[in-house]
């Protein structure tokens, strides 16, 4: 089997294994897995409303996936997407509600604020990694919790002790009456187009620019890059900043599109952690991330239909997602299995 085929087979096998074990869990719990997966399917494609909601759910996943993938390509593990997404969401909601400007300025400004906030949040771990060799995984995890508590305190301060910020002005909104009427009044908004553009931007940066080449090179081998005259610390910081900007924009999708404000959170949104799964499944390629986001966005949103139609708790979808991550991470063993399989075939001939 060629390497290319194996690289595509590993995520596919992981998805299938995840779904099979999900089915076994349903069987053990006394449910009919066929009914469960039909309910899941209907939750995605069953009505124009569901389809609109699914695309809406996919949008932040694309950004979260791009953020994780971009850092991965430079050899960095950004678990802080969750926190960067929250500060981006907060910044977008603040700029959207605090100013009154014409739409052509206001909307880009709100998006820019979100990207900048996410970038700033990722800059700190990037700087510590580049200058002091502090491992980015732990710092980004800590930054997640700092983001959560700081955001909650800021929301409280902005709303005079309330639980949520004011609604953003229409001039900063991504909402689209056209898409809403097209999809039976779902919350589908313009964000998915921005997400598609972001996919192209990541592809362009990595494949078509010198800077992108440097970033990838640092990811492959820091020493070789250094000897070739590249500035390793600058590239590490830049990779984290760009990654954080993608994450911040993901937050803007929620702030300017889906909700139109930000509410105090007791826990994380989960989008940032699912972004790790999206990136892994997409092999850290921009278009792979898009496919991964479509799968996980579909699973997440379709899963909401499972309690209604089949009586199965929605957490089954999270179980399946966790299993898929587990299998993708254990790709080594799947590769070994595939290797043995293809050798046996050859011997058989």
């Amino acid at each position: 089997m060629s390497k290319r085929v194996v690289n595509i087979l590993v995520p596919l096998i992981s998805i299938v294994l995840g779904l099979i074990i999900g089915a076994i869990v349903m069987l053990i719990s006394g449910f009919n897995p066929v009914d469960g997966y039909i309910a899941l399917w209907n939750g995605v494609f069953g009505s124009s409303y569901n389809m609109g909601e699914t695309v809406r759910q996919i949008t932040p996943y694309v950004f979260a996936g791009l953020a994780v993938a971009f850092a991965f390509r430079t050899g960095l593990f950004n678990i802080g997407v969750e926190g960067q997404l929250i500060v981006g969401w907060l910044a977008a909601a603040y700029v959207g509600s605090a100013f009154e400007l014409p739409k052509i300025i206001h909307l880009p400004l709100a998006l820019l604020a979100a990207a900048a906030a996410g970038a700033l949040w990722a800059f700190i771990p990037g700087l510590l990694k580049a200058k002091l060799q502090v491992h980015e995984v732990i710092v980004t995890i800590m930054m997640n919790y700092i983001a959560l508590h700081v955001a909650n305190a800021t929301i409280s301060a902005l709303s005079d002790g309330g639980d949520k910020t004011e609604k953003i002005h229409d001039s900063a909104s991504l909402r689209s009456p056209f898409f809403e009427s097209l999809t039976d009044y779902s919350r589908l908004h313009w964000g998915f187009l921005i997400a598609l553009i972001a996919v192209l931007i990541m592809w362009f940066i990595l494949e078509k620019t010198t800077q992108g080449y440097e970033l990838k090179s640092v990811g492959f081998n820091q020493n070789a890059s250094e000897y070739a005259g590249m500035n390793v610390s600058k590239n590490i910081i830049l990779a984290m900043v760009i990654s954080g900007a993608f994450a911040g924009l993901g937050g803007a999708m929620e702030g300017l599109g889906t909700f139109g404000n930000i509410t105090k959170m007791t826990g994380f949104t989960g989008i940032g952690f699912d972004g790790i799964a999206v990136a892994l499944l997409g092999a850290n390629q921009p278009f792979g991330v898009l496919l991964g986001a479509i799968l996980f966005g579909g699973l997440k949103n379709g899963g909401l239909n499972m309690p209604n139609e089949a009586g199965i708790p929605v957490e089954i979808v999270s179980i399946v997602i966790a299993l898929i991550i587990f299998f993708v991470a254990s790709g080594y063993i799947i590769r070994v299995g595939l290797d043995r399989l293809s050798k046996k075939k050859k011997e058989g001939k």
């Binding site: 678990i79 952690f273 790790i276 966790a322 299993l323 991550i325 587990f326 991470a329």
Partner: peptide, 10 residues
Amino acid sequence: TVAGVALNLL
């Protein structure tokens, strides 16, 4: 790290 993240979700 990825396996740990999966463990948390699971």
